[in-house]
């Protein structure tokens, strides 16, 4: 039991990061109809800015991370306003390739701006919480708990905004049909710009969490694995809804952790290496049988 709980607590942070990245990718997918491959590097850029504030200016992490988020937000809005708005009628594949061009730009620009060495990054809160379950020690880091709190706050806030605010209504309208939304008087330019800004800021928070886990930003591709998981979560949950991808984003790291736990309990410790392979394979099988995703809606296509 204690071992199970320990395993569960380790996976809290990956779940938080995946959920936030998935939310960012879903928001952009719904308003701009493209998968943003640059999400990871834009997030990493935000984390670099935060690390710069942390190391050079000596700010507290609670101030540095929001500054990084603002920087990532500025980049994301710039991308939407300057590049995507002009290429509005570039097809879906073209948009994807533009985002991948952005990867090259940011990967090239980051060492120019921040220097070549890997920046140090602090934890949000130091220390552990430990308690005993059935005579065994169970430990969870305060950092993970704080990140969990931040994530829950962000997710709840965004879902409330989407459901009840005017902005949420216009996002949902744009997501369902951009042209009709324009016709009924929604300024889709502003909606997409805000969505990109939101995605950038969310990404920066996620990257800060990822960096706080390993005490440094190891490289600019720090978010790539989470981003790949987030794409898969989007497909698995179905991009048709906002909650589907988020649920899938919780499921993917959780399933991997459960497989590791199962392997150790049954006596096959080598299963932990295969955990991600099994999770991806299961997801692909699920998608193959439900192409709309677990929570997707079937759409009827006209010929």
């Amino acid at each position: 039991m204690a071992y199970f709980l320990n395993n569960l607590f380790i996976v809290i942070l990956p779940i938080c990061i995946t959920v936030i990245v998935t939310l960012a990718i879903t928001v952009i997918f719904k308003t701009s109809y493209t998968t943003n491959f640059a999400q990871g590097v834009i997030s990493a850029f935000g984390a670099y800015v935060a690390a710069k504030c942390l190391n050079s200016a000596g700010l507290s992490i609670w101030l540095a991370v929001p500054i990084g988020a603002v920087a990532a937000m500025a980049i994301a809005i710039f991308v939407d306003v300057v590049i995507f708005r002009r290429g509005r009628y570039v097809n879906g594949l073209g948009k994807q390739i533009i985002t991948m061009g952005l990867i090259s730009i940011i990967v090239g620009a980051t060492p120019l701006i921040f220097g070549a060495q890997t920046p140090k990054f602090g934890k949000f809160v130091e220390g552990n919480q430990s308690f005993t379950v059935g005579g065994e020690q169970v430990t969870v880091t305060n950092n993970a708990l704080v990140c969990l709190g931040i994530t829950i706050a962000i997710v709840v806030l965004i879902f409330v905004l989407l459901r009840y605010s005017k902005w949420g209504l216009s996002v949902r309208a744009t997501a369902s049909n951009e042209y009709v939304a324009e016709m009924v008087g929604i300024n889709t330019h502003i909606v997409t710009a805000i969505s990109w800004g939101l995605a950038g800021a969310l990404g920066a928070f996620a990257a800060a969490m990822a960096a706080s886990n390993s005490t440094e930003i190891s490289h600019v591709y720090i978010m790539t694995n989470y981003q790949v998981n987030a794409f898969l979560a989007g497909i698995l949950g179905g991009f048709a809804t906002f909650y589907g991808p988020v649920v899938a984003a919780i499921l993917i790291p959780l399933a991997s952790s459960l497989i590791t736990w199962f392997g150790n309990t049954v006596g096959i410790p080598s299963l932990s290496g295969w955990a991600m392979v099994i999770v991806y394979a299961l997801s692909l099988i699920a998608i193959f049988f439900k192409p709309q995703g677990l929570f997707g809606k079937r759409t009827v296509k006209k010929v």
Binding site: G87, V90, S104, G108, L112
Partner: peptide
């Protein structure tokens, strides 16, 4: 001296090609 500049330029090139010269 600045090998990353090439990555930077290739990114700009890709975006320009997609936007203006498909």
């Amino acid at each position: 001296d600045n090998p990353v500049v090439i990555t930077f330029i290739s990114g700009i090139l890709v975006i320009l090609v997609v936007m203006f010269y498909p």
